[in-house]
Design a protein around this nucleic acid. Structure first.
Length: 248
DNA sequence: AAGAAACGCAACCGCGGAGGG
DNA sequence: ACCCTCCGCGGTTGCGTTTCT
């Protein structure tokens, strides 16, 4: 069976791309387009394997790539798309013009994962601490609100099991649980957390099916809006602004 | 100032699916 | 039906840079 190595190590360049290689690849693709990456590598005179060329083009050289920091709106969108899609970075990237799956994946694995973990720890410290330890800034939170917050944690830990079963991967392991703490209004008593959880589980499967079946771009955004307005009930407005920009 | 630790990101790896011969 | 190649994806690694001690 065994797969043939994608490229033989000897006679192939590895490691960082040089400016000269970048130019050779860019020039070739400008003329011939981005197909048959193995041919691209060979015909462009690059001592690189096709996949290496492909990655370099898609993640770095493509003209429509957006450079620079991820904006807060984009960050929020990534978090919410990750909640819907799990680790399907290419799908997430497809909804963020100019951003690559690799960039989003890196951003998630570094910045967001840490932020969310810190957020979770902060929430746990705040919520689970005995009332006599809570500082003056948090004493105004009612007992009811605290109860809801603790309940929220339990619910999402439980529903997570179901999500994992339906999703069939580790895609939603920690992140989905953590995101709830950051994005959902944990201390907001206006919406039943049970409803939220149940709807989330079912809507997740629905979204998944739609995405797998190739839902159109505009429909996707409408679904996001639908999800935010009816299921999560925890949007903060800024992301909807971003979503609006992508609606037809 | 120097070494250690943490961080950020480009690049690589390995797998699975699609499609052609 | 089978094999092979190509492509795309998610996970992981390596290394340069920045921050901390």
């Amino acid at each position: 069976m065994g797969r043939r190595p994608r490229c033989t190590k000897e006679e192939m360049n590895n490691g960082p791309w040089t400016a000269e290689e970048d130019k050779m690849l860019t020039d070739y693709i400008k003329i011939h387009g981005e197909r048959k990456w193995c041919n691209v590598a060979r015909k462009a005179g690059l001592k690189r394997c096709g996949n290496s060329c492909r990655l370099r083009w898609l993640n770095y050289l493509r003209p429509d790539i957006k450079r620079g920091n991820i904006s807060p709106d984009e960050e929020d969108l990534i978090i919410r798309l990750h909640r819907l899609l799990g680790n399907r970075w290419s799908l997430i990237a497809g909804r963020l013009p100019g951003r690559t799956d690799n960039e989003i994946k890196n951003y998630w694995n570094t910045v967001l994962r840490r932020k969310l973990i810190n957020g979770k720890q902060h929430m746990q410290n705040t919520i689970l601490r005995p009332s006599n330890e809570i500082t003056s800034s948090t004493t105004s939170v009612s007992n009811g609100a605290k109860t809801n917050a603790v309940k929220c944690k339990k619910i999402f830990e439980t529903s997570q099991t179901h999500e994992l079963e339906t999703f069939g991967s580790n895609a939603l392991e920690e992140p989905s649980k953590e995101v709830c703490f950051v994005n959902d209004n944990v201390l907001n008593e206006s919406k039943s957390t049970e409803d939220c959880s149940q709807n989330f589980s079912s809507s997740f499967n629905y979204m998944d099916e739609l995405l797998m079946s190739g839902v159109s771009g505009s429909d996707f955004w409408k679904l996001c809006m639908f999800y935010d307005n009816t299921v999560a009930g925890c949007n903060n407005g800024s992301t909807n602004d971003l979503l609006d920009k992508h609606l037809p």
